[in-house]
Write a protein that binds this DNA or RNA. Structure first.
Lengths: 151, 151
DNA sequence: TCCATATCGATGCATTTGCATCTATATGGA
DNA sequence: TCCATATAGATGCAAATGCATCGATATGGA
């Protein structure tokens, strides 16, 4: 089967996207480590659980939200639970599953991570592009999402 | 010390960038696996070495180009050498170092990876944004590079 | 020349990730 | 009701990664 070739513009944009996103992640992870804080993935999960409120979330609901594999979620939740940042509750109408809820100490950790994470975003994105440029960037990136959904 | 808060625009752009880049990498890695091909990192190294030509590159020169840690480069090169895709040559004027050169079979592998990788770029980027939009995206992303260099 | 320090690249060990599979419960059709 | 199949989540094992450190060579100053 014939494979297509990408346009030079597509290749350049791709290369920049790959390189920049990795640099930004690396810089942010470094800042978190320097502050004695856990990795970004912990923030992602704590953030989703905080948004979900008292009802919590089922582990399988986290898979798509934080872009982790099923076993990744399973193990990350085990670590978070061991640290007392989340709690697992049995769910009444499905004996296979559980509900995961953020604890007060989890909310506190989320806040502490955010002081570093947010500062990193401000420095690495906010300082480099104007509000308009950031909106343009966000709009273009939205068109690359999968599945492609409006906005 | 006081930490800054990022603007809402910066946060949105950041979130989109993180999510989209991970989705694109995942889709591309999946395509490579489906084709029985090695990961993207192998392509990155083979690409740099192919560009470098017969002179090859020193391992430490690859560190910044492919954004891997020193030990990551060391081990990846060991795997590539074991597969016969690169060869290590002693370098005359520095007894500590070596020069790494791509082999014919390495060039062939690079080509084979590109048929899948390039098609993935075409599908995931080229099909979704116009040439002008891709240029805009690339320009905005360039402003986020570290260190910030012109373009 | 000698020694302290820096650089290049490799590696032991612990942690993390990926893959495959497992157990347990749920669901739907015969 | 019973059984085949599907889904939720956990886990054993192998591979990859991160961290610290090592051995070897280079370099620069006393």
């Amino acid at each position: 089967m014939a494979k297509r070739s990408p346009s030079p513009e597509a290749v350049t944009a791709w290369a920049r996207l790959m390189r920049v996103s990795r640099q930004l992640v690396e810089k942010t992870e470094d800042a978190l480590k320097a502050g004695g804080l856990p990795p970004l993935a912990w923030y992602d999960v704590l953030h989703e659980l905080a948004e979900a409120g008292e009802g919590g979330l089922r582990p399988f609901e986290l898979i798509d939200r934080v872009l982790l594999a099923q076993y990744g979620v399973s193990r990350l939740l085990a670590r978070l639970e061991a640290e007392g940042l989340v709690e697992k509750l049995p769910v009444s109408d499905d004996g296979r599953g559980q509900t995961v809820r953020i604890t007060p100490s989890g909310r506190d950790m989320r806040r502490r991570i955010w002081t570093v994470y947010g500062a990193s975003i401000a420095e690495l994105m906010g300082d480099r592009l104007s509000a308009d440029e950031l909106k343009t960037l966000a709009t273009l990136l939205a068109r690359l999402r999968h599945p492609p959904i409006g906005n």
